[in-house]
């Protein structure tokens, strides 16, 4: 816009130079004056018109063109700001996208690490539990074996005692019925002498 205004002003000045700068030349009948005369150009009128045009142009410039230009500049600035903001937003979005991707990648790596650790821990726990179960099974088997052995020993002892009791009872009964009084006396005398002899 400013370029247009400056072009107009330059044209005006050039025009003034062409047609109003040398009225004497025009009166003297130079080629330019002749041409201006042929076209009906009056130098004084032209100057006044140029001044009038300059005043109108200045008024237009300061009252209309300049505010419009200011508004346009502001709008241009706003657009530029908007574009810059959009560019920044785009950059920030790209940065956010990059950070998001990075965080997703880190999260995936962390998840993978946790998963690996969990697998290792679960594997260790399975091995530990397996060993514990094996130890418990072994202990149970050992206790069962010991209990069986104890039970067997107890049964053997019970059988021995029962057999001994039966043998003693049978022997007592047989000896009581079979031994005569003379036999008993003979045995008692021998036992008493043996006992008396053994104490010294």
């Amino acid at each position: 816009m400013k370029k247009i205004l400056w072009s107009f002003a330059a044209f005006t000045l050039l025009s003034g130079g062409l047609f109003g700068a040398d009225p004497a030349a025009s009166a003297s009948g130079g080629p330019i004056s002749e041409i201006a005369g042929q076209f009906g150009v009056n130098g004084h009128t032209l100057i006044v018109q140029m001044l009038n045009f300059g005043l109108v142009g200045a008024a237009l410039y300061f009252l209309a063109v300049k505010p419009v230009a200011k508004t346009l500049d502001e709008r241009q600035q706003k657009i530029a700001d908007g574009l810059q903001y959009a560019e920044e937003m785009k950059t920030q979005l790209a940065e956010a996208e990059r950070e998001r991707a990075e965080k997703i990648k880190e999260a995936a790596q962390e998840a993978q690490r946790i998963l690996t650790e969990a697998r290792e821990q679960s594997k260790e726990m399975i091995e530990k539990k397996t060993q514990e179960a094996a130890a418990q099974a072994e202990a149970i088997l050992r206790k069962a074996s010991e209990a069986t052995e104890l039970e067997r020993q107890k049964m053997l002892s019970d059988v021995r005692q029962e057999v001994a009791r039966l043998v003693v009872a049978t022997t007592s009964t047989v000896l009581t019925t079979e031994l005569s009084d003379a036999d008993k006396k003979t045995f008692s005398d021998a036992a008493a002498r043996e006992l008396a002899g053994s104490v010294n």
Binding site: K185, D189, A192, R193, A196, G197, N200
Partner: peptide, 14 residues
């Protein structure tokens, strides 16, 4: 049953 006197005497002595 009964014991002989010699047996009792032996017991007392020993």
């Amino acid at each position: 049953g009964a014991l002989g006197k010699d047996t009792l005497a032996a017991i007392e002595t020993q």
